[in-house]
């Protein structure tokens, strides 16, 4: 059902993506100092610098640079990495899937467990499950995910030696699905823990809020069993507020992947970005940020559409 809301929302994607390219472009081109010198080092010859400046299009005006950059971008040309000596797009494509897999699994894990525990905490408010969950949530939102990752490696990888601690080099390197899954367990849990804690808290609050609404009283006045009151009437309404936050969580998970990939040596875009920043491989950073931002925008689009399918008031605009 392609209703007018979804259509409008799809059309709005274009200016958002356009804006994203402008911001990425501006941030990178406002680099203080000469990127060419930064790339080549302090002892480069003037000729070499001029050559690199030309290659990067830095001898053009800023709008012209942007125009050329965008034009190339639309053709899939993200430029060349001076450090890796290959096209940026090739490097990104090789690393996109591992990142999306890690972030996706973490997002699903955190959403499912976050919402379930949130409901349990709300329904059993002030009883022991609620108290246990509340303390766990507090610790969850206060824990740096990279530190959690290190602890997981230490206990499950080193001490107990149940799971591989990292070293996932090639996604399709022959280990098969089982190997990938085993490598995925620890990083996705570390990544999901914090995001999940935020969702537990949100779901609990949303459920408590909704349970006080008049229509819940109406549902009870109709003699509906409490199970139906909670899940059909209260939860669906709470979900309207939860879904956009899941969209935001996607950003959290995609960003957090940078830490987790570094800790677990996961071959994704996050780890690529960190090393690209330290080697000042500007174009690689630009491409990586852009691709992840696009993914994030698309996930939020899906969240908005899901929310509109649930809530007729949003469809009406």
């Amino acid at each position: 059902m392609l209703n007018s809301y979804i259509l409008r929302r799809l059309l709005l994607i274009a200016p958002v993506l356009f804006g994203v390219t402008i911001i990425v472009f501006l941030v990178i081109s406002l680099v203080p100092g000469d990127p060419a010198k930064a790339i080549l080092g302090t002892f480069a010859t003037p000729e070499a610098v001029a050559q690199v400046r030309h290659d990067l299009g830095l001898d053009e005006s800023l709008p012209a640079q942007y125009g050329i950059w965008l034009f190339n971008l639309l053709q899939g040309d993200f430029g060349r990495s001076y450090i890796l000596h290959k096209p940026v797009i090739v490097e990104i494509m090789a690393r996109l899937f591992p990142t999306l897999l890690l972030a996706g699994v973490a997002l699903v894990l955190s959403s499912v467990f976050g919402i379930l525990l949130g409901i349990v905490a709300a329904v059993r408010q002030n009883a022991w499950p609620d108290k246990v969950i509340t303390v766990a949530v507090l610790i969850g939102i206060s824990t740096p995910s990279f530190w959690l990752g290190i602890l997981l490696i230490f206990w499950f990888g080193v001490r107990l030696a149940w799971l591989p601690v990292g070293g996932m080099q090639e996604m399709f390197g022959g280990g098969g699905v089982w190997d990938v899954t085993r490598h995925l367990v620890l990083p996705s849990c570390a990544l999901a823990a914090v995001a999940g804690a935020v969702l537990v808290r949100l779901t609990r609050g949303a459920m408590l809020e909704v349970m006080r609404q008049d229509f819940v009283r109406t549902a009870r006045a109709k003699g509906l069993p409490e199970r139906r009151v909670i899940f059909v009437h209260a939860f669906r309404n709470a979900l309207v507020g939860i879904i956009p936050v899941i969209g935001l969580e996607a950003g959290f998970v995609l960003g957090g992947a940078v830490y987790i990939e570094t800790v677990f040596q996961w071959p994704g875009i996050g780890r690529m970005l960190v090393s690209a920043i330290s080697t000042r491989d500007i174009l690689l950073v630009q491409g990586g940020v852009l691709v992840i931002a696009f993914a994030y925008v698309l996930i939020n689009l899906l969240a908005d559409i899901a929310q509109s399918l649930l809530d007729p008031r949003i469809r009406a605009g």
Binding site: V27, I28, L30, F252, G255, V258, L273, I277, V285
Partner: peptide, 16 residues
Amino acid sequence: AFPYLLLALAIVAALG
């Protein structure tokens, strides 16, 4: 529209 950590990374990349 950016995952905020990523935007922060881009800014650090630019500023050093």
